[in-house]
Amino acid sequence: MAQPPASHVRTPLLPGVYVPTMTFFDPATEDLDIPTIRTHAVRLAKAGVAGLITMGSNGEAVHLSRAERALVTQHTRSALDEAGFKHTPVISGATDQGVRGTIEICREAADAGAEYILLISPSYYRAAMGDQNTLFEYFTKVADGSPLPIILYNFPGVVSGIDMDSDFIIRLSQHPNIIGTKFTCGSTGKLCRVASAMNAITPVSPLAKGPAETTATSLMSPPYYAFGGYADFALQTLVSGGSGIVAGGANVLPRLCVEVFNLWSQGQLAEAMEMQKILSDGDWIMSKYTIPGTKSAIQACYGYGGYPRAPMPRLTEAQEKEVADKIKPAMVIETKLKDVA
Score class of each variant (00 low, 15 high):
Thr21Pro: 01
Ile105Phe: 02
Ala143Asn: 11
Gly98Tyr: 05
Asn154Cys: 10
Thr217Gln: 15
Ser187Pro: 05
Thr181Tyr: 08
Gln174Leu: 06
Thr181Phe: 04
Ser240Leu: 00
Ile201Glu: 09
Thr290Ile: 11
Ala67Asp: 15
Ala234Met: 07
Ala297Leu: 03
Pro156His: 12
Leu253Gly: 00
Ile201Trp: 00
Ser221Glu: 12
Pro122Tyr: 08
Lys86Arg: 15
His40Met: 02
Gln276Lys: 11
Thr294Gly: 12
Val194Leu: 08
Gln97Arg: 11
Gly306Val: 03
Thr335Ile: 01
Met286Ser: 04
Asp111Ala: 15
Gly48Glu: 04
Asp232Tyr: 12
Ser187Tyr: 03
Ser265Met: 06
Gly267Met: 07
Thr237Asp: 12
Gly59Gln: 10
Asn58Met: 11
Val323Glu: 02
Ala297Glu: 08
Ala216His: 07
Ala216Gln: 13
Leu235Lys: 11
Ile285Tyr: 04
Thr335Gln: 15
Gly16Pro: 01
Gln299Thr: 13
Arg43Val: 00
Ser92Asn: 04
Gln3Phe: 06
Thr215Tyr: 05
Pro222Lys: 10
Lys277Gln: 14
Pro4Thr: 06
Gly242Asn: 01
Tyr289Leu: 09
Gly98Asp: 11
Ile327His: 04
Arg193Thr: 14
Glu320Met: 11
Val204Phe: 13
Pro20Cys: 10
His175Arg: 06
Met275Gln: 05
Ile333Asp: 00
Asp339Phe: 06
Gly305Val: 00
Val204Cys: 09
Gln74Ala: 07
Ser146Lys: 06
Ala324Ile: 02
Ile120Lys: 06
Glu115Phe: 07
Thr316Gln: 07
Val62Leu: 14
Gly306Ala: 03
Ser166Arg: 11
Leu337Cys: 09
Ala300Lys: 02
Thr294Asp: 02
Gly242Tyr: 00
Arg69Cys: 14
Lys209Phe: 04
Arg309Gln: 05
Asp165Ser: 11
Glu259Phe: 00
Tyr225Gln: 00
Thr73Gly: 04
Glu317Ile: 03
Asp165Gln: 14
Pro4Asp: 06
Glu60Val: 01
Gln299Lys: 06
Tyr124Trp: 13
Arg171His: 13
Leu119Trp: 10
His40Phe: 01
Gly189Gln: 10
Ala127Thr: 13
Phe261Lys: 03
Lys288His: 15
Ser173Lys: 03
Lys326Met: 11
Ala247Leu: 09
Asp144Asn: 15
Pro147Gly: 10
His87Trp: 08
Ala50Cys: 01
Ile178Gly: 05
Lys288Cys: 06
Met275Tyr: 13
Ile120Leu: 13
Gly210Trp: 04
His8Ser: 08
Ile120Gln: 12
Gln319Asn: 02
Pro4Ser: 08
